[in-house]
Write a protein that binds this DNA or RNA. Sequence first.
DNA 1: CTGACTGCAAAGGGTTTGCAGTGCT
DNA 2: AGCACTGCAAACCCTTTGCAGTCAG
Lengths: 150, 150
Amino acid sequence: MSKNETSEVESRLERFKAAAKDSGVKLTHQRLEIFREIASSHEHPDAETIFRGVQPRLPTVSLDTIYRTLWMLNNLGLISTLGPRRDSVRFDANVAPHHHYVCVRCGLARDFDSADLNALPIPPRVKDFGSVIGSHVEVRGVCNGCAATT
Amino acid sequence: MSKNETSEVESRLERFKAAAKDSGVKLTHQRLEIFREIASSHEHPDAETIFRGVQPRLPTVSLDTIYRTLWMLNNLGLISTLGPRRDSVRFDANVAPHHHYVCVRCGLARDFDSADLNALPIPPRVKDFGSVIGSHVEVRGVCNGCAATT
DNA sequence: CTGACTGCAAAGGGTTTGCAGTGCT
DNA sequence: AGCACTGCAAACCCTTTGCAGTCAG
């Protein structure tokens, strides 16, 4: 790992310690190691992967502590999740290019079209990851239904 | 539902019938109704929602038939899924604005940055759905690792 | 000290699979 | 008639929860 990346991890760790103090959350050994694990990963690991990653350092940690810690970090705004939180799979009969509005509260998903967004300038270095099939935009927000129930 | 939308559903149904014939898949009553249900939905329903939707027309259908049919339709390219197929939740320690490359084969997810993509022109009518918190671009493709294993 | 946190084990919810009966082609 | 498809029930996997002991502040 490069020097830059190391300091990025350190700065994230400091942010975690500060946020923990602010919110009264206790800074346990487990939480520190779990956060270090995800903060130094370039992938976007699932709970199981983080579990395996911290096992050398936390031999007795359990998977449920991983989950509890990850959601806690998520609540503090220090990490986020990819895709909908823990929903069931959702299906889409619209195979034409389109984009999505997703409610972060209830998971409601709606389509919208936009010629501009259909032809996005994808940076060339994305090709380093692999082939590009297509792209779409995901807009996150709180839908009217959920806003009404606040 | 408007006339346009009705004909859109009909044309999707025709496409399904043609694809079924081509691939030797049998056109059962259940499959037709399940496809009609998802093709006429503006939401992006999950299996359970489709299940409830078709119950008046298919009183004895079971949830597992819904699943089998949906994955079959997905394999035929007639529908797609939102988010990764059936994965576990993935976490992301990068809270700064960024975008994702996702492998459709293995689910690998990598970040990339782009100033251009950070400031996308979101169509005004998206606001009709609800508030907008942010947006990001998701590029789909087959990663180098998976391409090598072909 | 004391309440928050952890580990264990068991429950929970969505999804998949094996099997025997059914119905399309 | 043959073989894919369906419904049922049980299995499966990921995730969450209840509880008693433990530890950070």
